[in-house]
Simulated scan of single mutants.
Amino acid sequence: MSAATLPDDQRLIEISPKAYEHPADRAATAALHSIPMLDTVVRKLIEYGGERALRQELLGNYVRLGDAQLPEVWASHRAALARLDIQEVPELYLGQGPFINASAIGSQRPIVLLQSSTVSTLDDLELRTVLGHEAGHILSDHVLYSTALAILTAFGARALMRLPFFAGLPLLAVQLALLEWYRAAELTCDRAATLVNRSPMTTCQTLMVLAGGTASRRLSLDAFVAQAAEYVELEPGWDKFSRFRSELLQTHQYPVRRVSEIQKWVRSGDYDRIMSGEYRKRSEPVDPREEAGSASEFYAERFRGIFREFGEGVSKVGDKAGDAADKLAGWLRRE
């Protein structure tokens, strides 16, 4: 099923990710773009640092799904993409993993990865929710930065820094900045998932299963929603600082906070407006000033601070990335 074959009343035709983008994602992305030469580092890291290796790992160690391999999961994947009116269908892989998780990577041709526990634990609509979340990453073009983050996570920033062609690059700082951005991007994709499943409480239910690792039929969604409210309401000074420290190296916001964010979005009326057909289209121009907003400076200073902590000014990072690329290219030619 492609986007073209899904009935029009089930598609959000030409919907722009800006229609449902979380303000934190908008601000963090604008801040990343404001850091001189950071995109150069990210693109060189992907070009020479392992996207091809990641693809080979998938082909050799994962199961590629399709019409002849878990066709019901493949159909759900295509339907999630079609709901967001995404024409291209990325490859879908299944790997063995004890944690309920999924990801979208690949800066050239995005691919979606599912861990086996995701398929075995979630019910059909919850799985559609996860696939809708990953479709949101693709539509928002998060895959450039998320692929760089996946490479840094898979190979280790410290390990890559020991290679001669990456020596001197502040990859730990890059990783921390990308983690900060990714946590914000996840909130946007929870909204995309909700537009796919058309059930905000199903999104909350799926987050409950992600948190508990147990099938939803054995859990109480009402109790989990109440837990989310308790977590958000109780933020005294020390607890807030403790949460900041614990989230620093996390790729995702805590599930209870994500539940709270979805509920706030629905209460704002934006979800209902989109479902009624009132939303921004991809063809509509984007105002750079609107995209940046006042909150982007908050993230920009956070990112600059991360680089300063590692003793590196961000303006010098691009030159070092170029040198690293030349060194690695020469090594590959010799090999």
Rank of each mutant, 00 (worst) to 15 (best):
R198Y: 07
W265E: 06
G212T: 01
R245L: 13
R243D: 02
H252F: 01
R257N: 08
R257Y: 11
L179V: 06
T203Q: 01
M201C: 09
L178Q: 10
D222Y: 08
Q175P: 01
F224L: 13
Y254T: 03
V196A: 03
L248P: 06
T214G: 04
A228E: 12
Y254R: 07
V259D: 07
E180D: 10
W181K: 08
W265K: 04
S242W: 15
R191T: 02
K240C: 04
R258F: 11
L248G: 06
F224P: 14
A173M: 00
A211M: 06
L195R: 05
F241V: 11
S246T: 10
W181M: 12
Y182N: 15
D222F: 13
S199T: 12
Y231S: 07
Y231D: 06
L176K: 12
V232G: 02
A185I: 03
S246V: 12
L178P: 05
L187G: 02
S260V: 07
M201Q: 13
L179M: 02
T251G: 06
N197G: 00
A228T: 03
L221H: 10
D190C: 05
Q253P: 01
L207C: 05
P236G: 02
T206N: 06
R258D: 11
M208A: 08
P200Q: 01
L219Y: 04
Y231E: 09
D190A: 01
Q205C: 04
C204M: 13
A215C: 00
L179R: 09
E233V: 15
L249E: 13
D190P: 11
R198P: 09
T206L: 06
R198C: 03
L210Q: 15
V259A: 10
E247G: 12
D222N: 14
V256E: 02
Q253S: 08
A185W: 02
S260H: 10
S220M: 13
S216C: 06
L195E: 03
Q227N: 14
A193H: 00
Q205P: 06
N197T: 03
V209R: 14
F224Q: 14
L179F: 08
A215I: 02
L176Q: 15
P236S: 06
L187T: 02
L210R: 07
A228V: 00
S268D: 00
L176R: 12
Q175V: 09
E261H: 03
A229P: 08
R218G: 10
W181I: 15
I262T: 08
V209N: 07
Q263R: 13
Y182M: 15
F224T: 13
R258C: 11
V209Y: 00
W265M: 05
D239I: 09
A173R: 12
F244R: 00
Q253M: 14
K240S: 09
C189T: 10
R198L: 09
P236R: 11
E233P: 14
S242A: 15
W181P: 12
S199P: 04
V266P: 05
T203I: 01
T194H: 04
C189R: 00
L210N: 11
R243S: 09
F244N: 01
Y254G: 05
R191I: 01
